[in-house]
């Protein structure tokens, strides 16, 4: 107690005040550091002058130029095809993998786990280039197919990690109960296990989607001519803007991409939130357990 009193009195009031305010101030500054660049980019996408970072009047001309070009729409199409296909495949495969890792013992499990997480720590350039070499050696023309093959490979570990996290919070005795009540394995899987894991599976898909959609480095090496996804188109536009100094269009594209990709987690959050209120009702349409 004495030490406490001593300590209190040894610091003068203003210093203690600074100590108390410096931490929240730092948090505020760091948050600003994270968000200010994107916000400034958004504001300046409406700026009339595209090459100067100073306000020169409101204008929508960069959006008009961007949306009028054909390359944006074809790139969006390529990106959506690649991402939705690969997220679908990797969510299914990743969920099966997570289930196997969590529930079963099998030969070579440790090795399998270590290899599975390789894409998370092998540098992206190396992954991209090694895939590029493989496709060139096997004479597979690079394009949408190769992008899907690559995207599934590097989104699977993300799905596995998220679904595994959910599995730790699932009451597995329900599975046993279903089997005791006469359901066979497949029935139990369909009617008990998958619904129980659904929030995790959805969350995994929601994380894998931007992971695949925004990936640039690996995609850059496995994409082919004429099939440019959005991330590679953005890169090309950035290179152009760096050369010419005309940044308006990239600002507009960046704004649109950020807004749409931020809508997705919001949507997913709402979906998960709704499910939490009525977990039983959500799957009611698909028939009751019996």
């Amino acid at each position: 107690m004495a030490a406490k009193v001593l300590r209190r009195s040894s610091l003068s009031a203003p210093i203690r005040g600074i100590g108390r305010i410096s931490l929240p101030l730092l948090v505020g500054l760091v948050t600003l550091f994270i968000y200010a660049p994107i916000l400034i980019l958004m504001i300046f996408s409406f700026n009339d002058a595209g090459n100067l970072a100073w306000w020169d009047g409101f204008s929508l001309k960069w959006y008009q130029q961007l949306l009028a070009g054909e390359s944006l729409w074809s790139a969006l199409q390529v990106s959506l095809i690649v991402t939705s296909t690969s997220v679908l495949i990797s969510t299914v495969l990743g969920t099966i993998t997570a289930y196997a890792l969590y529930r079963w013992k099998f030969w070579g499990k440790r090795l399998f786990e270590n290899v599975l997480y390789l894409p998370l720590y092998v540098p992206e350039v190396v992954l991209g280039i090694s895939l590029m070499m493989l496709f060139i050696l096997l004479k597979i023309p690079r394009g949408i197919t190769t992008m899907i093959l690559a995207h599934v490979a590097f989104t699977i570990p993300v799905v596995v990690l998220v679904v595994l996290a959910r599995m730790q919070r699932v009451d597995w005795s329900l599975e046993e109960a279903a089997m005791d009540l006469g359901a066979d394995e497949l029935m139990t899987l369909r009617k008990v296990t998958v619904p129980l894991l659904m929030p995790g599976i959805l969350a995994a898909a929601l994380l894998a989607f931007p992971w695949s959609f925004n990936d640039f480095v690996i995609t850059y090496f496995v994409t082919g001519p004429g099939q440019t996804p959005l991330s590679v188109l953005t890169y090309d536009l950035v290179l152009g803007a760096r050369r010419t100094g005309a940044m308006g269009q990239v600002n507009a594209l960046g704004t649109l991409m950020t807004l749409t990709t931020l809508l997705l987690p919001l949507l997913g959050f709402l979906l998960l939130r709704l499910r939490r209120f009525s977990p039983a009702q959500f799957f009611k349409k698909r028939g009751s357990l019996s």
């Binding site: 970072a53 931007p210 925004n214 990936d215 640039f216 953005t234 600002n251 960046g254 991409m257 990709t261």
Partner: peptide, 25 residues
């Protein structure tokens, strides 16, 4: 707020910094 950036495009975020840091404009 700190997880959100994972959903946005990496290329766009880097471009945003290039827009801020360029000299002289």
């Amino acid at each position: 707020l700190f997880i959100m950036p994972f959903w946005t495009s990496y290329v766009v975020r880097i471009f945003a910094w290039m827009f801020l840091l360029r000299d002289p404009s």
